[in-house]
């Protein structure tokens, strides 16, 4: 006997999330609903006396398959929302009628059969292992081969062959120069040793600040420091004769 509580819990836990397949718009929501269905089914397996399958269900479906689905969803764009409006004429009605008809047919068939349930409890992992590696050992082996084939197949199918030869560093550099970039590295920012000078522009030989030596991020955040501020600080604390700003000197000469 199976606990009715278990049955109803499982029924609700599977049927309601599975309806998301029909009505949810976001693929991620559907995937998570299916994960829920899988967990519910695992519970059902355990309740039906098949703990091994229940665990396998969790591991394979929730752990591997559905995660794979999620990965692929990420790859193809997780934020795709599907328009549920039907494009094929009559497809919706055909689908609903056939699915409904199928359900009615199946249920009527099941209702007709009469099975006297066996009270014998089977399904502990040891028994399964004995059967699996004895009677079904050949099928086991073949399935192993199938899995490897599938893995190789997936690799082959998702592999993109290199269409162009790999670019060498020299070629990359030449392309950059051609696009108008600086032929050499940008100057390093900062000239003031007493300060964390990443936010201070470097100075060119004339003493003028080189604006683009500072990271663009700092520039956007308006965290770039001005040289003048430090000069003022320096001039106020030290001998102005020793630490004269070249820029100011140049201006003075003008």
């Amino acid at each position: 006997m199976v606990s009715p509580v278990l049955f109803w819990v499982v029924a609700l836990l599977t049927v309601i999330p599975s309806l998301a397949l029909l009505f949810a718009r976001k693929a991620v929501h559907i995937a998570m609903s299916i994960v829920c269905v899988m967990v519910g089914l695992a519970a059902a397996y355990v309740g039906l006396g098949a703990p091994f399958l229940g665990v396998v269900q969790i591991v394979v479906y929730t752990g591997a398959v559905m995660m794979l689905f999620l990965f692929v969803l990420m790859l193809v764009g997780v934020d795709q929302r599907e328009d549920l409006k039907e494009t094929l004429r009559g497809q919706r009605w055909i689908a609903l009628f056939t699915a409904g008809g199928l359900a009615i047919l199946l249920i009527s068939v099941i209702g007709r059969v009469s099975i006297s349930p066996q009270e014998e409890q089977v399904g502990n992992p040891e028994d399964i292992a004995l059967v699996l590696f004895d009677r079904y050992v050949l099928v086991m082996e073949v399935l192993g081969a199938l899995l490897i084939t599938a893995a190789v197949g997936a690799l082959v199918m998702t592999h993109t062959p290199r269409l162009l030869p790999r670019k060498t560093q020299a070629e990359v550099h030449a392309a950059r120069v051609l696009a108008g970039a600086d032929p050499v590295n940008k100057p390093m920012p900062g000239v003031y040793a007493r300060h964390n000078a990443l936010d201070v522009p470097a100075l060119d030989p004339d003493g003028n600040p080189i604006e683009h030596s500072v990271s663009r991020v700092l520039e956007v955040r308006e965290q770039m420091s001005d040289g003048d501020e430090f000069r003022a600080r320096l001039e106020s604390t030290a001998n102005p004769e020793d630490h004269q700003n070249p820029q100011a000197e140049a201006e003075g000469e003008k």
Binding site: I94, A95, T98, A99, L102, L105, V109
Partner: peptide, 22 residues
């Protein structure tokens, strides 16, 4: 050329077969 129409055809065929049998 619509995959879903083909799927629908398959399912309709299945339902008809099942209905005939049942």
């Amino acid at each position: 050329g619509q995959v879903r129409t083909y799927a629908a055809t398959m399912l309709v065929g299945l339902v008809i077969l099942a209905a005939v049998i049942v």
